[in-house]
Simulated assay, not measured.
Amino acid sequence: MDITIGHTPDADDAFMFYGMLSGKVTSPFFNVKHVVEDIETLNKRSLKHELDVTAVSVHACAYLDDYTILRSGGSFGKGYGPIVVAKQDMDVEKLQRSKIAIPGKLTSAFLLLELMIGKFDYIEMKFSDIPDAVASGKVDAGLVIHEGQITYDQKNLVKLLDVGSWWRDSTGGLPVPLGVNVMSNHFGIDVIRKFDAFFRESIIYGMARPSDALDYAMQYGRGQAKETIDKFVRMYVNDVTIEMGILGEQAIRNLFQFGIEKSLVPEFELRIA
């Protein structure tokens, strides 16, 4: 069976798919073709149902009509997640009146920040452009995801808010639900679960061979040092990535419950394999 998979140009995604896309882990059921796009592009493509399997922001799942969330391959932060940075310190009241760069309206980071501070003025831009936009003064602050969470100080920026810590403290320690992989419902639940198991095997393979998987992931390192990418990958490829479990599923459900209560997302049927 031929399937098309979308993943992001990020080291953690590449690390997860290393076994599968390198041919080290194979399946008698699936022939995989992959495409690489940034997360907000994949979110928008999923709205059009263009890919069989794709990485998406958890937030985007509120708007997907015909996909099921896989139990493997999720990006969950354990007490850490997106941060808000600026050139100088400011309080939340001033931040709410400022122009904040965000990596996309469908990203989980955007929904989480709205839950944390309420509505705010924003401008969308590619996630990798946000630190420079803040440093240059193009925007007052930036909502930073991916490796920018650990490299922002290289541009002399300061951290204003830690969304991951806020989520942990607000939920009694649940992991921060950021990204998941989804598969088209037209395959049926049995095939979806077979692919989920295939993907899980790929993740386990990479985690058992971290040096090889990291070397593969470095093609999406965006010029960062290997030590930085290693740190970033270890942040978001963890036991919840292998299988979201009760805590991961509860984190997703809580995110949408909070969002619905504040009218930030519509009510919908959540489908998890």
Results as ranks from 00 to 15, higher is better:
Phe256Met: 04
Glu50Met: 07
Leu115Trp: 00
Val237Thr: 05
Asp212Pro: 03
Thr68Met: 13
Ile260Trp: 08
Val25Asp: 07
Gln257Lys: 15
Thr107Gln: 01
Met125Gly: 02
Asp121Pro: 11
Asp215Ser: 11
Lys94Trp: 06
Arg97His: 14
Phe120Val: 10
Ile83Val: 13
Lys48Trp: 00
Glu147Pro: 01
Ala109Trp: 03
Pro82Lys: 04
Pro175Gln: 09
Pro131Arg: 06
Met235Leu: 14
Gly179Arg: 05
Phe15Thr: 03
Asp132Lys: 12
Met218Glu: 05
Gly74Asn: 04
Phe258Met: 15
Ile5Gly: 00
Met207Trp: 01
Asp89Tyr: 14
Leu264Ile: 03
Met90Ala: 02
Ile3Gly: 08
Thr54Gln: 09
Pro266Trp: 02
Lys99Cys: 14
Ile192Ala: 07
Asn156Pro: 09
Asp190Glu: 15
Lys105Met: 13
Ser202Gln: 08
Lys155Ile: 01
Phe256Thr: 04
Gly77Ser: 06
Gln149Ile: 14
Ala217Gly: 02
Leu64Ala: 01
Tyr122Gln: 05
Lys87Gly: 15
Val240Glu: 05
Phe187Pro: 02
Leu270Tyr: 07
Gln88Cys: 12
Ala135Arg: 11
Arg271Pro: 08
Gly23Cys: 09
Gly221Arg: 07
Thr241Asp: 00
Ile145Lys: 01
Glu37Asp: 14
Asn254Gly: 10
Gly223Ile: 05
Glu124Gly: 06
Leu64Tyr: 14
Ala135Lys: 15
Thr68His: 09
Asp52Cys: 04
Leu111Lys: 06
Leu174Met: 08
Phe15Gly: 13
Phe256Trp: 05
Lys126Trp: 01
Ser108Tyr: 07
Leu51Ile: 04
Ile123Ser: 12
Glu147Lys: 10
Asp91Ser: 11
Lys105Pro: 02
Asp52Ala: 09
Val144Leu: 10
His186Ile: 14
Ile204Leu: 15
Asp66Gln: 07
Ala135Pro: 04
Asp12Thr: 05
Leu174Ser: 02
Phe17Ile: 03
Lys138Asp: 12
Asn156Ile: 06
Ile123Asn: 01
Arg71Met: 11
Lys105Tyr: 11
Asp38Met: 00
Gly172Glu: 00
Asp121Thr: 15
Asp12Ala: 15
Tyr216Asn: 00
Arg234Tyr: 07
Ala213Ile: 06
Ala101Ile: 00
Ser211Asp: 15
Phe195Lys: 12
